[in-house]
């Protein structure tokens, strides 16, 4: 029973991956919108873009990690 609950918890934690996806999409979309308005400034800001994506994605990875822990380590 406990293992099944852990599996349910893992599934719930996986929702966090979707949330991170929203975040990454937000970052990339807003970057694209800005880049199309001012293409000349876009090239200098790709590093910032990747840092932003990395931070947003890290939280999704945390959710994934929680899911993995529930699946395999609890």
């Amino acid at each position: 029973m406990e293992g099944e609950l852990a599996h349910i918890g893992a599934g719930l934690a996986a929702i966090g991956s979707g949330a991170a996806a929203i975040g990454v999409g937000n970052v990339a979309g807003n970057f694209l919108a800005g880049a199309l308005r001012n293409p000349s400034a876009a090239a200098s800001q790709t590093a910032t873009l990747f840092i932003g994506i990395a931070f947003a994605e890290a939280l999704g990875i945390f959710a994934f990690l929680v899911a993995l822990l529930l699946m395999f380590a609890v």
């Binding site: 293992g3 993995l68 822990l69 699946m71 395999f72 380590a73």
Partner: peptide, 14 residues
Amino acid sequence: AEGVVEAGPGMPQL
């Protein structure tokens, strides 16, 4: 439960 025992800790990373 058997599987978990066989695999040791589920995540080799841990």
